[in-house]
């Protein structure tokens, strides 16, 4: 049974978790961010599943941090989920500044 079960399990375990496998490391992270931020900005909670499926705490933290910069209102919640001390420290620049969560005034939209 293990002859077919093992490859099947390996396929299932990896499939759908991270389909940004091509390119160099930066390209992969950017690909993950583009996918997650599109869902995140659209209010689609599927970005959480994508995040959980990422291999490695550093990748997950990088994505959380980039999303926190994209939407500082979500910063405190994202920063609380940080897994690595370096990311927790970097995230203080967002979560430690509660005024960042205030909405922009009319005419003060973000250019980024």
């Amino acid at each position: 049974m293990t002859r077919w079960l093992l490859p099947a399990l390996l396929t299932c375990a990896c499939h759908g978790r991270d389909d940004c496998a091509t390119g160099d490391a930066v390209d992969r992270e950017n690909c993950r961010f583009e996918k997650a931020s599109a869902l995140f900005s659209a209010g689609d909670d599927a970005w959480r599943a994508q995040l959980e499926g990422l291999p490695g705490a550093h990748s997950r933290d990088l994505l959380r941090l980039r999303l926190a910069v994209l939407d500082p209102q979500q910063g405190p919640a994202l920063c609380r989920q940080m897994e690595t001390p370096a990311a927790q420290d970097r995230c203080r620049q967002v979560a430690g500044r509660p005024h960042l969560a205030s909405p922009p005034r009319p005419g003060e939209g973000d250019a980024q």
Partner: peptide, 21 residues
């Protein structure tokens, strides 16, 4: 198996160490 499954999905990550330095 859990270890095998985990290892099978590793892709030589950690470019983000630069970002968190």
């Amino acid at each position: 198996w859990p270890l095998l499954l985990a290892l099978s999905c590793q892709r030589g990550e950690e470019p983000t160490a630069v970002s968190m330095a």
